[in-house]
Design a protein around this nucleic acid. Structure first.
Length: 366
DNA sequence: AATACGTGGCG
DNA sequence: TCGCCAAGTAT
C-alpha cells in the first residue's frame, strides 16, 4: 500500500511519470492547446465514458459553434443538442448549459477556481471538478477517473471494488499523496495518458511502462487481478413498436420529454409493449398487438391509419441498461389534424436532434 | 447504495 | 452476436 512509499520514492515516481509525459504525452489533443477553463471543462464533460478518438471532432465542432461560455449559456437548446447528437449521455449537454448560465449569472462570467466551488455547478462531479481545478488553476487535487482507479489499483495492489461509491475515498487519498504539487494538472493528465496506453484495461503492456518498477502488481505478476470491479447487470430487454406514418406533408414526428432517456430528442411515436399490455394480455398474437397499437395511435395522436409491419428483422439497439427490440409499423395517410406531435417535412427532419435508434429506423424504411 | 443514462470499438 | 470497455454524474 501507499504507506510503503517514502517521500523519496514518491518524488522519484513524479519525476519518472512527468518526464515520460513531457516526452510522450498527447500534446496534440485540441483541448490541450491552452488551459482555459472553458476548454478544459467542455473536453472533460465530453470525455466522460467516451473515448478520445470519438471526442476530437465533436470538440472542434462545439468550439466553432459555441466559442465562449456566454455563447453556450445563450444557445438555443435544439442547436446545442444537434451539436451533441451521437455523443450520447445527453443530460451532459443539458447540464452544461445550466452550469454555463450559473457561471455567467452567479459569477459574472468568471470561473470559480477551487474544486469545492466547481463541484457545485450542475454536471460537475468530483472528477471533473478536480480536473478543472488542477489543470486550469494549479490546485493540487487528484482527478480520479477510470484510468486513475486502474493505475493506482495496479501500482499499489488495491483490491477495493472500484464499482462501489465508497471506494473513491481510498483512491482520492492515494492520489493526494502522490500528486506533484508543482505540476498537478500535468500529473493528473499523465496518469490518464498512462491509463489509456501502457496501463490500459485490456492489452496493457506494463513491461514497457515508464513506471513499471513502481508497479507492485507487475513486479509480482498479479496485474490481471487489478482493478477489482464487480460487473454491471445485463441490459434489460424491452420490446417497442415504432410508428412510421407518412402523409403528403411529411412524417408524424414528436419530441421526447425533457427528462429521462434521450430527453428532448425527436423520434417517431414509440410504444413500449409494456405501455399497454397487461399480464393478462401476455398471450396476444402479433396481429392483436398491431391492432392495439393502431387503436392507441388514434387515441393519442388522432391519427387513423391501417398499420402494416415493415418486412425484415426488428431494429435493435443496446443502451447501458436496456436492450430495445423495435418492430416498425407503417402507413400512408392523408394529412390529419393531430392531437399530439406534428407533421414534419422530410427535408426539415434532418435539422432535429435524433437518437441512433431513429437513424436505424430510417435506414430500415429506405 | 443502486440505478439511470448513449454510443462506438473490439476480441 | 455478445460482453466489456471508454477522461462520470445525478438522484
Amino acid at each position: 500500500m501507499i504507506e510503503m512509499w517514502h517521500e523519496e520514492k514518491i518524488e522519484a515516481f513524479r519525476q519518472t511519470l512527468l518526464d515520460w509525459y513531457d516526452r510522450e504525452g498527447r500534446a496534440d489533443l485540441p483541448w490541450r492547446r491552452d488551459k482555459e477553463p472553458y476548454h478544459v471543462w467542455v473536453s472533460e464533460i465530453m470525455l466522460q465514458q467516451t473515448q478520445v478518438q470519438t471526442v476530437i471532432p465533436y470538440f472542434e465542432r462545439f468550439m466553432k459553434n459555441f466559442p465562449t461560455i456566454t455563447d453556450l449559456a445563450m444557445a438555443p437548446e435544439q442547436r446545442l443538442l444537434k451539436t451533441w447528437e451521437g455523443l450520447g449521455y445527453y443530460s451532459r449537454v443539458r447540464n452544461m448549459q445550466k452550469a454555463a448560465q450559473q457561471v455567467v449569472n452567479d459569477y459574472d462570467g468568471v470561473w470559480p477556481s477551487d474544486m469545492q466551488a466547481l463541484q457545485q455547478l450542475t454536471g460537475i462531479g468530483p472528477y471533473t471538478a478536480a480536473a478543472i481545478a488542477s489543470i486550469s488553476f494549479d490546485e493540487p487535487v487528484p482527478a480520479i477517473d477510470g484510468n486513475a482507479f486502474r493505475v493506482f489499483a495496479r501500482l499499489f495492489k488495491i483490491d477495493a471494488d472500484i464499482a462501489q461509491a465508497k471506494t473513491r475515498k481510498i483512491f482520492f487519498e492515494v492520489g493526494q499523496r502522490l500528486i506533484d504539487p508543482e505540476r498537478p494538472g500535468d500529473f493528473n493528465q499523465a496518469i490518464m495518458d498512462l491509463g489509456s496506453s501502457y496501463m490500459s484495461a485490456k492489452n496493457y503492456d506494463s513491461e514497457h511502462s515508464p513506471v513499471k518498477k513502481f508497479n507492485a502488481s507487475y513486479l509480482d505478476g498479479t496485474e490481471d487481478l487489478y482493478p477489482v470491479k464487480t460487473k454491471a447487470p445485463k441490459p434489460k430487454p424491452v420490446t417497442y413498436f415504432a410508428i412510421a406514418v407518412k402523409s403528403s406533408v411529411g412524417y408524424l414526428w414528436e419530441q421526447r420529454p425533457a427528462d429521462g432517456l434521450l430527453g428532448n430528442f425527436w423520434t417517431m411515436p414509440l410504444y413500449a409493449l409494456t405501455d399497454f399490455i397487461t399480464d393478462s394480455d401476455a398471450n396476444w398474437t402479433e396481429e392483436e398487438m398491431v391492432a392495439a397499437t393502431q387503436k392507441r395511435l388514434a387515441t393519442d395522436y388522432g391519427v387513423v391509419a391501417d398499420l402494416k409491419k415493415v418486412a425484415g428483422r426488428p431494429v435493435t439497439h443496446v443502451y447501458t441498461h436496456l436492450k430495445w427490440t423495435v418492430t416498425i409499423l407503417t402507413a400512408e395517410v392523408a394529412p390529419q389534424r393531430l392531437v399530439r406531435g406534428q407533421w414534419r417535412a422530410i427535408e426539415d427532419i434532418q435539422s432535429d436532434p435524433q437518437p441512433k435508434i431513429q437513424e436505424k429506423i430510417w435506414q430500415r424504411l429506405s
